[in-house]
Structure formats: C-alpha cells, structure tokens
Amino acid sequence: MCRTIAQLDAEITACRACPRLVAWREQVAHDKRASFSDENYWGRPVPAFGPGDARLLVVGLAPAAHGGNRTGRMFTGDRSADFLIAAMHAAGLSNQSTSVRADDGLRLLDTRMTAPVHCAPPDNKPTPTERDTCRRWLVSELTLMAPYLRAIVVLGGWGWQALLPALAESGWAIPKPRPRFAHGAHVELSPARDRRSPLHLFGTYHPSQQNTFTGRLTPAMLEAVLRDAKRAADEGPA
C-alpha cells in the first residue's frame, strides 16, 4: 500500500501489469494521430490529477488514446475533456474552462480526477481482468483520501460498477442490493471503518461524444450534478 498520494501517482506511471494495455498504449504513442504527429506522446499509465486532500473526487473510465495517453494528464486534450472541464469550471471546481495540455495552468479546486483503469484501452473497453488488476490503485487512492473525501461523481455506468468494490475494500459500506447507476443518482454511503465520514456518491452520464453529440448529456445536466456534489462535499464535516 502506498503511503502518500505522490508515491501512488509515481508508482502508477511505472505499471506494466496488463500486457494488452501496455502494448496498445505504446503502439498508439508510436503511431500517433496525424494531427498530433509532431508531439511526443506520454504512452504510459496516466495518474490521477488534483490535490490528494480533495473533498470531491471525479471518477471516469480510462484515459483516451489521443487524450490522456498523449498528454499525460487525466481528461486532457480531447472532446470529453473539453466538455467536462467546462462544466467543472462553471460549477466552481477548476480555475479555467479548458484542459488542453499538461502545462496549460489548469488547477482543480478541492477536487481530484481519477479512473478505475489508468491505461488507454483499445476501443475504450478495458476487460474485466484489466479492471480488477487496476483496482489496487483505486483502493489505495480512496484509502489515502479517506480523511478528507466527502463526495464522488462517477462518469458513466462502467465507472460506477468498477468503483463500488473499491469503495467496499477501502472502508465504506455498500448497501444490498447494490445502488444502481443512473444519471442524477445520489446515494449516501456509511463508513465501515474509523477515520471515514459518510460519503455522497453521485452518478452522471459519461461526457463521451456518443452522449454529448446526441444530447443525452447536456452541459446543464452535467453542471447540475457537479454543483450538487460540490454542495455535499462542502457541507460535510471538516
């Protein structure tokens, strides 16, 4: 178990546990997209981004091949990032509305972004084995953040299902039957261990192009969930 968030982030970037993901992320970094042909791709696991003592955590799915896998920062350099960061800025969770590259000055405000899988997967679809192999990083992250964490926003049903076992392993009680994902879902989880506070879990559709281009997820819809989560995080015990 990592002792600090800095150690966790450093160890994540050196992980080679999943052969298929290692091969894919490195192939993408070598072949590149034509529009980014002059850039040096990150091509490694992408660590979480934001302060380790944040009260709010945003959980996605996995880095995008030409987004996080290119830039080295979670939700940076692709259209999902454009949509998400604009909504986070509107909700008061970031200092700017764009996330283009790792040195663009973006800061998250009392918020951290992570994912159940830290390598870009083919077709944006990690296998169950890859998800389970990567879970130890998420469990470590949740454990380290436990003294501060008050709310989580999960982007999409896949992330929701991946997060629940990690929450159980890191000290929160998961009701039975398990809470079901839905856009706008809100569940309060009770602590199962010391040094944990009740945790508010929110669900929203993932800001993928499939959802944002079709209007299934609008900026107003995402902003509303983020504002609710921020309010829950702010109102929780210090």
Rank of each mutant, 00 (worst) to 15 (best):
Cys15Trp: 15
Arg16Ser: 08
Cys18Asn: 10
Pro19Lys: 04
Pro19Ala: 11
Leu21Phe: 11
Leu21Met: 09
Leu21Val: 00
Ala23Met: 10
Ala23Asn: 15
Trp24Thr: 10
Arg25Tyr: 02
Gln27Asp: 06
Ala29His: 08
His30Pro: 00
Lys32His: 05
Arg33Lys: 11
Ala34Ile: 02
Ser35Arg: 15
Phe36Trp: 12
Ser37Tyr: 02
Asp38Tyr: 04
Asp38Asn: 14
Glu39Leu: 09
Glu39Cys: 12
Glu39Met: 12
Glu39Ala: 08
Tyr41Gly: 06
Tyr41His: 07
Trp42Met: 01
Trp42Gly: 00
Gly43Pro: 09
Arg44Leu: 08
Val46His: 15
Val46Gly: 14
Pro47Met: 09
Ala48Val: 02
Ala48Ile: 02
Gly50Phe: 07
Gly50Ser: 09
Pro51Leu: 08
Pro51Ala: 09
Asp53Tyr: 03
Asp53Lys: 09
Ala54Phe: 15
Ala54Asn: 10
Arg55Ala: 14
Leu57Tyr: 00
Val58Trp: 11
Val58Glu: 04
Val59Trp: 12
Leu61Ile: 14
Leu61Val: 11
Ala62Phe: 06
Ala64Gly: 11
Ala64Gln: 03
Ala65Phe: 11
His66Glu: 06
Gly68Trp: 10
Asn69Tyr: 08
Arg70Ile: 04
Thr71Arg: 10
Thr71Gly: 06
Gly72Phe: 12
Gly72Pro: 15
Phe75Cys: 10
Thr76Leu: 03
Gly77Ala: 01
Asp78Gln: 09
Arg79Asn: 02
Arg79His: 02
Ser80Arg: 04
Ala81Asn: 05
Leu84Ser: 02
Leu84Pro: 06
Leu84Ala: 07
Ile85Pro: 14
Ala86Cys: 04
Ala86Glu: 14
Ala87Trp: 08
Met88Ser: 01
Met88Pro: 03
Ala90Cys: 13
Gly92His: 03
Gln96Pro: 00
Gln96Ser: 03
Ser97Asn: 12
Ser97Phe: 04
Thr98Pro: 04
Thr98Ser: 15
Ser99Cys: 06
Ser99Trp: 00
Val100Trp: 02
Arg101Ser: 04
Arg101Gly: 01
Arg101Ala: 02
Arg101Trp: 00
Asp103Leu: 11
Leu106Val: 15
Leu106Pro: 00
Leu106Trp: 14
Arg107Leu: 10
Arg107Asn: 07
Leu108Ser: 13
Leu109Tyr: 10
Asp110Asn: 12
Met113Val: 15
Met113Tyr: 07
Met113Trp: 02
Met113Lys: 14
Val117Phe: 07
His118Ser: 03
Cys119Asp: 04
Ala120Thr: 08
Ala120Arg: 00
Ala120Gln: 02
Ala120Cys: 09
Ala120Asn: 04
Pro122Lys: 01
Asp123Arg: 11
Asn124Tyr: 07
Asn124Arg: 02
Lys125His: 12
Pro126Asp: 06
Pro126Asn: 12
Thr127Glu: 09
Pro128Ala: 07
Pro128Gly: 14
Thr129Asn: 10
Glu130Cys: 14
Thr133Val: 04
Thr133Met: 03
Thr133Pro: 00
Arg135Gly: 07
Trp137Tyr: 14
Val139Ala: 01
Val139Thr: 14
Val139Glu: 10
Ser140Arg: 06
Glu141His: 05
Glu141Gln: 15
Glu141Phe: 00
Glu141Val: 00
Leu142Val: 13
Leu144Arg: 13
Met145Val: 13
Leu149Val: 03
Ala151Asn: 13
Ile152Tyr: 09
Ile152Asp: 05
Val153Tyr: 11
Val153Ala: 06
Gly156Ser: 06
Gly157Val: 12
Trp158Asp: 12
Trp158Leu: 11
Gly159Leu: 05
Trp160Thr: 00
Trp160Gln: 08
